[in-house]
Amino acid sequence: MSSPNFLLYGANGYTGALIARLAVQRGLRPILAGRNPNKVEPLSIELGLEYRGFTLEDRATVDEALADVAVVLHCAGPFSQTSQPMVAGCLRTKTHYLDITGEVAVFEAIAAQDAEAKAAGVMLLPGVGFDVVPSDCLAAHLKARLPSATWLALGFQAVGRMSRGTATTMVEAQHRGGLVRRGGVLTPVPVAWKTRIIDFGQGALEATTIPWGDVSTAFYSTGILDIEVYAAFPASTRRAMVASRYLSWLLGLPAVQSFQKRLIQNQPPGPTATERAQGRSLLWGEVKDDSGKEVVSRLQGPEGYTLTAMTATAIVEKVLAGQVAVGFQTPSLVYGADFILEIEGVMREDLD
């Protein structure tokens, strides 16, 4: 590899800054980068790190910025707009690619470039944060417990507030409906298509289907053809999700989305340090086979943004140490189902 350092693009964002600070605490020296150098510079001064400002529209500029780094950790969303030019740059410069996306369309677009990545000797590993490391590792663990599994359900309860970036991504996707995987094929379904009772470890809750990234990634990690993902929401949120089925034409209008995004920008960047310390991530998974046999496992760990910083930094360390597999990958395919247990504060339990 060309360099022991990595480039952190989107370092001035809420999650990017968390990752930058944790990386420095762990002895890494990331090169901070973003579209606007004036927004990246203050963090670079605070942490004593090199910084670069460049946009993703110009190929030559991207290639120059990536020429001397071994791996990019891409944290600048919305990834539906930014991942393609960054992946293309990584393929041209033979730079390993990581990101923190949770968007199904992004996972699928990157998976389609598997052959190109193998030809370039590059690993493309999207989803190295809370989307989707813990759930992906849980899915792989469940498949190992029941190798005959043909059906997978995953669920999570995120205890804590979301960042402006996450909220913006949700606004951009709110009119697109839900997704599940049926017979190996991504299949559109209505928003909040199913609701079921799930015990994430702190009592039974109602959870509803969402188009979470594992609808894409768990298929590659486990080979299971039928996949659903659930999330626990308050009743008022579930009602709003159901109502959005009939307002998708309105929610997709540029003027409506712009108005919602302006409201989001008036909110705090994300959870405070105290809120993150008090929050938890609770995950549940279930697999079944055609005979009716089923097994259930659960995970609990730090709050989602804290967990994202921890898993993303841990994976960067592994890549810099040469632990890579070229082509499109998922976290569990490269580092195993037990990788998540290497993260401080994560516990897993198996249920009969």
Rank of each mutant, 00 (worst) to 15 (best):
A65R: 01
A153S: 11
E108Y: 07
T93L: 03
L28E: 01
A76I: 04
D214M: 10
V324G: 08
Q323T: 11
M347F: 10
P85V: 05
F200I: 13
I340H: 09
S2K: 12
S135P: 04
G48R: 02
M123F: 10
G183H: 09
R35Q: 08
L351E: 13
A149H: 08
V242I: 15
T330S: 03
G292I: 09
G16Q: 02
Y246K: 01
D350W: 01
A240L: 12
L253I: 04
H96L: 07
L18K: 07
L66Q: 03
L205D: 11
F328Q: 02
A112C: 06
R92H: 14
R182T: 11
V326S: 07
V72D: 10
S221P: 00
A255C: 10
F233D: 13
S332D: 00
A158C: 02
E286F: 09
T308C: 04
S221H: 03
T93W: 00
L250Q: 11
L28D: 01
S258F: 01
T308Q: 05
Y14A: 03
V69A: 06
R262E: 11
V215W: 04
D289G: 11
E342H: 05
T166K: 01
V242Q: 15
V287P: 06
E206S: 09
G165P: 02
A115Y: 02
N5M: 05
E228V: 09
S148G: 12
S332Y: 02
F200R: 10
T237F: 07
P190R: 02
Y14H: 04
A204K: 11
T61K: 06
V191S: 15
E57S: 13
T82A: 03
P190D: 15
V215A: 09
I210V: 15
A119I: 09
D289K: 01
S281Q: 08
E344F: 04
L341E: 08
D226S: 04
D68K: 13
G279K: 05
G345P: 05
A111W: 04
Q113R: 14
P4M: 04
R52C: 10
D114H: 14
E303G: 06
A112Y: 05
F339P: 00
L154A: 08
R92L: 05
R280Y: 06
M123A: 11
C75K: 02
A240F: 05
S248W: 00
T308M: 02
A309V: 03
D290R: 12
K261G: 05
V287S: 12
A11S: 12
R239I: 08
R21V: 01
V334S: 14
R52A: 10
P188D: 14
V132Q: 14
M162Y: 10
I197Q: 03
Q278A: 14
G223N: 08
L146G: 12
V180C: 12
T93Q: 14
M86L: 15
V104N: 01
P302T: 14
T101K: 04
D114Q: 06
T95A: 13
G89H: 04
G121D: 14
